[in-house]
Write a protein that binds this DNA or RNA. Structure first.
Lengths: 102, 102
DNA sequence: ATTAATGTTCGAATATAATCGAACTATAGA
DNA sequence: TCTATAGTTCGATTATATTCGAACATTAAT
């Protein structure tokens, strides 16, 4: 496990994004990543759930194209792919973030 | 079966809306309702699927608060609850509709 | 080399959802 | 009243997701 695979932006489907955002835990992760605007480790994003459960949710966020994870030492740094997603699906993710921020 | 129950707008959750929109068939229904902007019967919205399957999807769209159905004779007229949803979750549904329209 | 830290993957249990035929309900029209 | 129409509900099948402990992999530090 050296590098994590992500879909390219043209492979990202709107339904997958909707699905990823339909889980409260995942929506909260996305909200936190959007709020801080920086890369965060899974640890920082911990929501009182077992590691394996969190890992599962990150996997879905990644495969939906919402989150990018790069490995840095033992840590996995996660960030929102907001710029790309806003180009492909203008207004969708930003509106969700705005709603959740208020 | 006289009148169909819908959630009030304050009962509507963002995650339920996301979930409802994560299915291609349902997203297509929403897209058609948004595009025409008028009430449409389930028949008009038929997507080559059995009635019972379509009914299932409408049920989910209704319970998510996305669609309102009023009975008119033997027909069930469906419309998007876009005005209410835009007040509660500004920009979300409109962005999805815009993306799908393009 | 050991040990610790950070996540992933596996595997199995449980839960939720999709699908669709068949039976049903409600209304309209002849 | 009989029949047609529009859609829902039931029920059973199949498929997909969630959950989380335990084992594993990778890197860092001692």
């Amino acid at each position: 496990m050296r590098k994590i695979k992500h879909p390219t932006i043209d492979q990202v489907e709107l339904t997958d994004i909707m699905y990823a955002l339909s889980d409260p835990t995942r929506l909260e992760i996305v909200e936190l990543l959007g709020k801080t605007g920086r890369k965060m480790t899974c640890g920082e994003l911990d929501l009182n759930r077992p590691k394996s459960s969190m890992s599962h949710h990150f996997k879905i966020l990644r495969s939906a194209g919402l989150v990018e994870t790069v490995i840095d030492g033992t840590e996995h740094m996660n960030s929102l792919r907001i710029a790309e997603i806003e180009v492909k699906f203008p207004g969708v993710l930003s509106a969700v973030l705005k709603v959740r921020a208020s």
